[in-house]
Every structure is written in structure tokens, then in C-alpha cells.
């Protein structure tokens, strides 16, 4: 039984190699809740909180790379927020300041809840998840990384190193519906990115994985000239088509019908915001 705090990624990989059942810990905002509520009793823990490489980001000309252990607080303002406004908007909606000071994208990806606020942004902006492991590095498009409710394609002994997001001059935005403003898990969420010739849309909390509304995306690109204002009837049909791609369920947070309605409203709202 041990809690180890390695200083480098290679050290962390070695620790996992010698103890493949060790639990990875980043900000602890998901893991510690499970431990406190007695849902999980780790035998040993490898903390990623002291690995500098995982705590840095780089805003390049073509790509933004964000270390897996960068906290949300660092995405809310500054260079990351300027490069990726949708990520900043999503980060600002996570939990509370205390949660954003600790919680990370690596943890959001590790947990892979359909309501994870970082995930629709990664899906809409075609992010790639970079993973290191005993069998070498893997570069997994986000849309292949998440495979189900709280299931991802990480193999044993692998660590998420970073995510990279291509830079573009697209408009981008994120919006979320929940029962209150602060400290709320999404009932439905949506990220939209728009260039002069295409849109991408990703939905959170309305299906087992994050859903890209690819039919609605290509329909809109054919239905109008995206360098101009989208006519109102086209925007309405687009929102209907986005809502049709949702696969919501009834649960303790909401009904399926309300979730589908919320998706329609958010799609329309973000399309309108992209024109102002």
C-alpha cells in the first residue's frame, strides 16, 4: 500500500509498470468523492500532481497542447482562454472555484462522464488525446477515445499526457443547461464551432457518449452560405436536426424530453451568438 508522488512522466510509467493496479490521481475531484463515499478503496495511488510536464500548456501557431494535469482555473483566463474561448466557457461552468482549482481535463477524460464539461469542447474542436503507456505512445482522436458512459479506450498502465486542439479562426462557443448557475452538473450541454464554410456541433449529457451532430452539420453547410447570416427558418431546422441527434434518457436530473428541448434551444442560441 502506497501513495507515490513521482516527479516525471517516465517515473510515473515505471511505477505503473511495477504496480499495474495502482490508481492514478490528478485533482482528486472525482476520485476522492468515490473514496469518501466508500465506493472505492484504492490499494495504491500514483499522484500526477507534481509532474511539471503534465501541468503545462503550449499555445502554438497551429495547435494548442494542454497537459493532462492543468487545472480548469488556468483555462478560464489568459492565453488558453484567448486561443480556445469555448474551452474557457466550459471551464468556467465547472463546479466552483475550489473544484476548478483542482480539477483537470485528464481527470474529465479519465472519468469520461457524458456530462463532463470539457468533453463536448474536445469533440467539437477535433481534439486528439495523447497517451503514454508501456507499449509506447498513442494519439487518439477524442471521438474514438470515449466509448461509453464512464468508459474510455485507455489500456492498463496508460497515462493521458495531454490533449491537442487544432487552432483555427472559427467562432466557437459552449453552453450548458442545469438546475442552477454555480456548482451544477449539466442536464444538457453543447459546443458549436463555425467557419465561413462549415459548423461542428457536439452534445453533452444527452447520450452514452458525447455526440457529434454530423447530419445537422453537413445539412447546414449545404442549406446556406455560412459566411452570411443564417436565415431564421434554416436556423430552426438546424436546431431541430441537432436535437434529433440526441439520445437522451430520463434520470434523476431530468427527463429525456426536456433534454432534447434544451439541446434545440442551445443549438439555436449558439448559432445566433456566432453571428454577433
Amino acid at each position: 500500500m502506497s501513495v507515490l508522488v513521482p516527479r516525471s512522466l517516465s517515473e510515473a510509467l515505471d511505477l505503473l509498470r511495477s504496480d499495474p493496479s495502482a490508481t492514478l490521481l490528478a485533482g482528486g475531484t472525482d476520485l476522492m468523492v468515490e473514496i469518501n463515499l466508500h465506493d472505492r478503496r484504492p490499494r495504491s495511488v500514483v499522484s500526477l500532481s507534481r509532474i511539471d510536464e503534465l501541468k503545462t500548456f503550449h499555445v502554438g501557431d497551429d495547435v494548442v497542447t494542454i497537459g493532462a494535469a492543468v487545472p480548469y482555473a488556468d483555462m478560464e483566463h489568459g492565453p488558453l482562454a484567448e486561443a480556445l474561448p469555448a474551452l474557457a466557457q466550459a471551464a468556467r461552468t465547472v463546479g466552483s472555484p475550489q473544484i476548478r482549482a483542482a480539477g483537470t481535463l485528464g481527470g474529465n477524460l479519465g472519468t469520461c462522464s457524458p456530462a463532463g464539461d470539457g468533453l463536448p469542447v474536445l469533440a467539437a474542436l477535433d481534439a486528439v488525446v495523447h497517451v503514454v503507456g508501456p507499449d509506447g505512445d498513442r494519439h487518439i482522436p477524442f471521438n474514438d477515445f470515449m466509448v461509453g458512459v464512464k468508459r474510455n479506450s485507455l489500456a492498463g498502465g496508460e497515462i493521458i499526457r495531454s490533449v491537442s486542439i487544432p487552432r483555427s479562426d472559427c467562432w466557437q462557443g459552449y453552453a450548458k443547461v442545469g438546475s442552477r448557475n454555480a456548482m451544477v452538473i449539466a442536464t444538457a450541454s453543447l459546443c458549436l464551432s463555425r467557419s465561413s464554410s462549415s459548423v461542428t456541433v457536439a452534445l453533452g449529457a444527452v447520450g452514452p457518449t458525447i455526440i457529434r451532430a454530423i447530419d445537422a452539420e453537413s445539412w447546414l453547410a449545404d442549406a446556406c452560405d455560412l459566411s452570411l447570416k443564417v436565415p431564421s427558418d434554416v436556423a430552426s431546422e438546424f436546431a431541430d436536426r441537432v436535437a434529433a441527434s440526441a439520445r437522451p434518457i430520463d434520470d434523476h436530473r431530468s427527463t429525456a424530453a426536456y433534454r432534447r428541448h434544451a439541446v434545440r434551444v442551445l443549438a439555436r442560441r449558439l448559432l445566433e451568438r456566432s453571428e454577433s
Binding site: V5, L31, V45, S47, A101
Partner: peptide, 16 residues
């Protein structure tokens, strides 16, 4: 330097 919830910090990981 960051305000966090101590209930969500694994004590043994805060050694440094």
C-alpha cells in the same frame, strides 16, 4: 497557493 476543498485532497499526496 490555490484554495481547494480539503475533503477532496488525498492527504498522503500532499507531502510536498
Amino acid at each position: 497557493g490555490r484554495a481547494v476543498c480539503s475533503c477532496l485532497v488525498l492527504a498522503a499526496s500532499a507531502v510536498d
